[in-house]
Design a protein around this nucleic acid. Structure first.
Length: 429
RNA sequence: GUGGGUGUAGCUCAGUAGGUAGAGCACCUGGUUGUGGCCCAGGCGGCCGCGCGUUCAAGUCGCGUCAUCCACCCCA
């Protein structure tokens, strides 16, 4: 039989890396809940039309990266390439959006994009998304950035760069786009690289952050988006900058910051790392004030962001192996049933317990105990017919004592509680 | 979609001018420790990615193919 392996860009996650994901996810739940966000879960398959309308039919994501297929009735379905469209669809469908209310949700799960894999990029990847709907105040923008910063800090990521920009709104962006395109048209085409000669038509903003020297020179004299913003956009953005300026959060203004999805307007931001390869962005988001209406909902503002779990996980150190509280070893086969019984008793008292499922030599069992990271080993031995003696060994000190079966659970609970306190004390903040 | 790198034991990698494969770690067993860790001895484990070709002979050379990685593009 030939072996079947996973598809390109679909990766298996197992310990210890899977533990890193668990830590990131539970930290996210904890932090986001403190900011009033509730968890939402939406389907990973939606009608293709949702993404075409939401993300924009001109975007690369929609044009060439979606996993789309007809279902049995011939309707085009798509594995979600991002989360926002689905979350908004759900809120609209269930009439959760009412004037005056602010809704704050987070959601987490797999996304799918058909791309060539590389470092920090897979075809199935995982995101944590946050959406705050119904409030247009700069206070929301800033609170969301604070929340993102707190989350990233609490998973231990302190040397990330936070970038901020304002993309303008439907009132002012077209004029800026036009003047940028003029600037690029006026430049000598020979100064631009091949990619940029194409980009100046497809996505002119991208020319601004091209690394080729000639393009950078052209970009130098290009119009700056934040200088072309209309008065309301400018007022909003200034307020965001002002509020951030009074906080400890360091943010770099980056007028070249562009987002790949059409729905972004106004405040946009991105968090980047220099340590994870070319795909350096670990989180990104911004305002999408027209999107809810565009998806058939009320005219309400919204803002959100997404974090790439795989990219975060590259930066988070692996967790120490958990280690089992108690490992039970048995001198002879007849005692294995006793081990099962004691294990159940101890586990009901919230201790983690393992024992070998087959009779092996004492040496072998002890090796297993050591490998399992056991803090204590219980050694069962025959003591007359129907009698069993229990010895408890502390694997740290090597000390050993005889215990009566009746006192086992209470005694171990106390010892392990004491043990955990000693371990957690140095880490307390 | 485009470019480049890499594919030898579970993992990390050696493999000399082509002569039918090796290390370290891991794993298993045993010795020494009261009964684990350290140490010692032994053992398990490889169609050298796959196919075709050159050759008396290919892990080693050529072609093709598949997989994987990195980068471009784009994005979290």
């Amino acid at each position: 039989m030939t072996m079947i392996q996973s598809g390109k860009g679909f990766v298996d996650l197992f310990p210890p890396k899977s533990d890193v994901f668990t830590v990131i996810e539970s930290t996210a739940r904890d932090v986001f809940t403190r900011y009033g966000c509730r968890e939402l879960r939406t389907p990973i398959i939606e009608f293709t039309e949702l993404f075409v309308r939401g993300i924009g039919d001109e975007t690369d994501v929609v044009q060439k990266e979606m996993y789309s297929f007809p279902d049995r009735k011939g309707r085009s379905m798509t594995l979600r390439p991002e989360a926002t469209a689905g979350v908004l669809r759900a809120c609209i469908q269930h009439k959760l959006l009412r004037q005056g209310d602010v809704l704050k949700f987070f959601t987490l799960g797999p996304m799918f994009r058909y791309e060539r894999p590389q470092m920090g990029r897979q075809r199935q990847f995982h995101q944590i998304n946050v959406e705050m709907l119904g409030a247009s105040s700069p206070l929301v923008d800033v609170d969301m950035l604070f929340m993102l910063h707190r989350f990233l800090s609490e998973i231990g990521l302190t040397s990330l760069e936070y970038q901020l920009n304002s993309l303008g709104c439907p009132a002012c962006r077209p004029a800026f786009q036009a003047s940028l395109e003029n600037h690029l048209r006026d430049a000598n085409p020979d100064d631009l690289c091949d990619d940029c000669r194409r980009r100046m038509h497809t996505n002119p903003l991208r020319v601004l952050d091209c690394k080729v020297p000639g393009c950078r020179a052209v970009a130098q004299g290009a119009p700056v988006i934040t200088e072309h913003n209309c008065a309301p956009c400018r007022t909003h953005f200034d307020a965001v900058i002002d509020l951030l300026g009074r906080s400890r959060l360091q943010i770099r203004l980056n007028p070249m910051l562009v987002r790949g999805l059409d729905y972004y307007q106004g405040t946009t931001f991105e968090v980047v790392s220099t340590d994870i390869g070319a795909q350096s962005s670990v989180a990104g988001g911004g305002r999408y004030d027209g999107l809810i209406r565009q998806l058939g909902g009320p005219d309400m503002p919204g803002i959100g962001f997404a974090c790439g779990l795989e990219r975060l996980a590259m930066l988070v150190p692996e967790q120490p192996e958990p280690g089992v509280d108690v490992f039970i070893v048995a001198q002879e086969e007849s005692l294995l049933e006793k081990a099962l019984e004691i294990a159940q008793l101890l586990r009901s008292r919230r201790l983690s317990v393992e024992f070998p499922y087959a009779q092996r030599s004492m040496k072998s069992q002890m090796r297993s105990a050591n490998k399992a990271g056991a803090r204590f080993v219980l050694m069962l031995d025959k003591a007359g017919q129907d009698q069993c003696s229990v010895q408890l060994k502390d694997m740290g000190s090597g000390e050993q004592q005889t215990l009566s079966e009746g006192h086992l659970a209470a005694y171990l609970e106390a010892r392990i509680a004491e043990y955990s306190r000693a371990i957690s004390r140095p880490g307390e903040q």
